[in-house]
Amino acid sequence: MKTDSRLKRVLEKGHFAVTAECGPPKGADPKVIKSKGKILKGFVDSVNVTDNQTGVVRLSSLAACVLLKKEGLDPVLQMTTRDRNRIALQSDILGASALGIRNVLCLSGDHQSFGNQPQAKGVFDVDSVQLVQLVRQMRDNGVILGGDKLSEPPRLFIGAVANPFADPFAYRAIRLGKKVAAGAEFIQTQCIYNLTRFNEWMDKVRDLGLDEKVYILGGITPLKSARMAEFMSKQVAGMDVPDEIINRMKSVPAREQRQEGIKIAIETIQALKEARGVHGVHIMAIEWEEAVPQLIEAAKLFPRPQV
């Protein structure tokens, strides 16, 4: 059966998938989303829409997904458990499905203390694993939490995230397994700069046979500058930017740093393509969507397959 999720189709067909990220604006203007969609269209298989990322209030992910859908893209709805309890989450999942959204990415979300609403009450009624499980139950069994039947189950390709770079390292693959067990079908990882560590993680993942149970998309964020590299290394939680990357960025003049960032990203993508069990990449060009087509072309991932 042909599913509505392009991403799923690409992956099922064994193609190396490419997804990108799209941050909604801090305002109600739909044009911003539309223009970002235009840039990415044709270059990626799906577009993730972040859900109030870093706890900053933005246009809602669901609304942005609908806008992108209208533009002809295949959106991935990101859902954090930070802001909504199980009632709201389940209701939004039903709503998303009804509006034709076919991918959902379940995550707990950055802690509210990082954003512009640090006084907010963090909900965390369920956690990301539980959310995966809950969506899967809704979709496959047609029941919500507590067992009530749905008149019509949602149709969603279910994703989750993994961070191979966070601690405790040994547990990271196990946790992935847990998400898989809960029902995740694809995984997007944290940005990869430290390939050594990523490969170590993948070894464990492969040992557990998880690469055969779930599609893993490696996270790619092209660096804009040496400063950004340093910032990410030091300030961003769960990020691992090795010194050699920072030094490499520093070694070129400032105006050439963007290009160097792209280069690094391309090299990383190439490496990922070689890695057994990696099924694609997820490009998070933070507020730099225009770099994505360039990057995809340079990484020889263009054109995208027709599925």
Partner: peptide
């Protein structure tokens, strides 16, 4: 756990500390 996760840790755990507070253990 800052996020009250039953199936943690989240991706912010680094060197045994919580992403929300570098002094707080994960």
């Amino acid at each position: 756990c800052a996020k009250g996760l039953f199936n943690g840790p989240c991706g912010g755990s680094k060197d045994g500390k919580c992403e929300t507070d570098p002094d707080a253990p994960c």
